[in-house]
Simulated assay, not measured.
Amino acid sequence: MNDIDAWVWWLVGAAALGIPLVVTAMPEFGMFAVGAVAAAVVAGFGFGVVVQVLTFVVVSVALIAVVRPIAYRHSRQNPQLATGIDALKGKQAVVLERVDGSGGRIKLAGEIWSARALNGDLSYEVGQEVDVVEIEGATAIVM
């Protein structure tokens, strides 16, 4: 196998490693593919098979050792942007119909919601501003 064949084979290997990356979404395959590209570059400069394989192994292992822990930490973080009902918690609403422990209506984020008081002994009158503590189904729990 001459030098041209070697770098072509490394690029074929990189492309072959890219297929399971796309199919399985496992980033490790991408790191191996980058290692194969690095070995192709080394092969293109005319280095021998031993140096090519060492380059592949070193680059792949280095990427896994460095990138994988960083990606793991980022995947475990909670999203910084609250969406859906999580975005409504802590918002202020205006009482449209008297709200007490058994129910009522509020205007929250431009929409009319059924609501009930967190403390069943308290009631909130029309026009009063309340804070949304929790969302249970389609009912906002307010205080």
Rank of each mutant, 00 (worst) to 15 (best):
L17F: 04
G84W: 00
G120A: 13
L81W: 07
I64V: 15
V126C: 05
A109I: 08
V8A: 03
A16H: 08
W113M: 02
D5A: 14
I106E: 00
M143A: 14
S102E: 11
R73H: 13
G104R: 02
G90N: 09
N2K: 03
P69D: 07
A115F: 03
A15I: 01
V41L: 13
A140F: 01
P79F: 10
T55H: 08
M31V: 01
W9I: 05
F29Y: 09
V59I: 11
F29L: 01
A71D: 14
V59D: 01
G137Q: 08
G120I: 15
A140L: 04
G103T: 02
G120F: 14
F56Q: 01
G44H: 10
G103N: 06
F56I: 02
R116L: 06
G46Y: 08
D3R: 07
A25K: 13
W7N: 01
D5C: 11
V99C: 02
M31Y: 02
N119C: 03
T83R: 13
V59R: 00
M26E: 14
K91Y: 04
F47M: 09
V95K: 03
I112N: 15
L88A: 13
I64P: 14
V50K: 15
A14M: 02
V49R: 12
P79R: 15
G110Q: 09
I70M: 02
Y72F: 10
V12W: 09
S102C: 09
V130L: 08
A109P: 06
I135N: 05
A115C: 06
H74I: 13
Q92Y: 12
A39S: 09
A39T: 00
V94F: 11
L17H: 04
A25H: 08
E125D: 15
E125R: 10
I85S: 15
N119K: 11
E129K: 12
V133A: 11
T83V: 15
L108Y: 04
A117I: 02
T139F: 03
E134Y: 12
W10G: 00
Y124W: 10
E129I: 05
V126I: 14
I64H: 07
L118V: 05
F47I: 03
M26H: 15
D5H: 15
F56N: 01
S75V: 10
V34M: 09
P69A: 10
G90H: 04
I4L: 13
R73T: 01
V51C: 12
F45W: 05
I141D: 09
T55V: 09
W9C: 05
F29V: 02
A25W: 09
R68Y: 06
A65R: 14
M31N: 02
G48W: 07
D5N: 11
L11C: 04
A93N: 07
